[in-house]
Design a protein around this nucleic acid. Sequence first.
RNA 1: GCAGCAGUAGCUCAGUUGGUUAGAGCACUAGUUUGUGGAACUAGGGGUCGGUGGUUCGAAUCCACCCUGCUGUACCA
Length: 455
Amino acid sequence: MVKDKKIKPSKELPLGFVDRQEKELLIRDFVISNIKEVMIKYGFQYLETPSFEYTDSIGKFLPDKERPDAGVFSFKDENKWLSLRYDLTAPLARYVAKNYLEIPKPFKRYQLGTVWRNEKPGPGRFREFLQFDADYVGTDNLQADAELCVLASEILTKCGLEKKDYIININNRKITDKWIDKLNLDFKSATGLSKAISIYRAIDKIDRIGLEGVVQLLGKGRKDKSGDFTKGANLSQSQITIIKKYLIEGQQPMENVEGWDELKRIEKIFSAYKFNNYKITPSVVRGLEYYTGPIFEIELKFGVKNSKGQTVKFGSIGGGGRYDNLVSNFGNINCPATGISIGLDRLVFAIMQKKDFNIIAKRPVMICVFESIKIEEYINILNKLRDSKISSEIYPGVGKLKKQMEYANKIDSPAVILYGDNEKELGKVILKNLKSGKEETVEIESLSNEIKKIL
RNA sequence: GCAGCAGUAGCUCAGUUGGUUAGAGCACUAGUUUGUGGAACUAGGGGUCGGUGGUUCGAAUCCACCCUGCUGUACCA
């Protein structure tokens, strides 16, 4: 016989995509229900936008390339490039621009949705993940910014995190900009501009590589653990000193700087809300593209283990900030806005590992099947249980009692019901508690009540 | 993208300086127990040793190229 050489489909998943099992999904449901509760309480409306957008609508452009910028998943449909959304903020800006005349000002909406990023995954970092997003559109009032932090904190608390588990780092882009101005870079030249960008990027990495690493990146460059070398911004010694000073003393007030006023006002509002789990952190940078004012980042303060048991330090599980120019990209609309996002999969993953956190799936009570008994009799018992809202099933297969018991054990069933010839004669059933192993003979009529005692 | 490391059973891995039919644990199937799971014991199934080419009497083992993954780093709205 010739062996069938047909090529079989791969059972592997594409890079960066994962199967999610019940435990994770149940916790995710729990997180989502907390989010909805908080959002209703804070007066946000629920919105959904599609997974795909025109590529240029979400801030990706295709110069003369075959494909849109890397980072997004895209395809060409009828000569138009479509991309899967990579966040929920850009689609919101598009939505606001499209419906500008109809929506209330300010417009408060929240959204839960999957987003996709076509980039290299890492520990705790996937190419498909669920994001939560809350935004205040159409107001420049800093109470909006403050309230977003307060609400994020309330969500985390509801999900079981304590104050010591996380902190919201806040900063203001205007302050960082002011300090970089002191370097006297020539922003009109390409090198000046790229130096400025390198500085933002370097500052942002202080968490991982420390002040020393940042200084290296500001200067000649830095070699990482694997021996790979990253080119630096090539700043002069005196310029580096200024940035160092900013990172070390940046929490100190600066005279007459607009960004500081704003942070102070936000702090005032925080204290009215009795919210104090935050810290002014000069190294917070966030995305370079669109933030214009106050920015915030939610940092988890405990180590999280991944599926391989490695401790993963998530940089942040969420963040956001003010983006006053994003909506105006779509037309002549002046529309300030501020928003916050939380990566739900990361949050779920983190709270899954809190020891005291335990959500257990409800497993069905199982009725074993004996050949000599008609199926109708089992269905009668089953219906009684299901009418009493007891999760239950008849052994979904064919097999010996042993096999049936092994199945019940494997699915973590709390109990099995045995009804064979002996029981039929008595007109009763055996209820076996699978946790304790104990069996008792009970009347069919009182079966539901007896089971409820076990559950 | 760059760098380092790694690919042997469903999973985790062993496989000695190249040497017969490639191993273990877990998992799976069957039996010991034809009406009883989580324990034990017995037996069994399951591998193009990531791929291709080369060296050799002989390759999981050595060489070359390719593919894939992991980790770090870069980019990251």
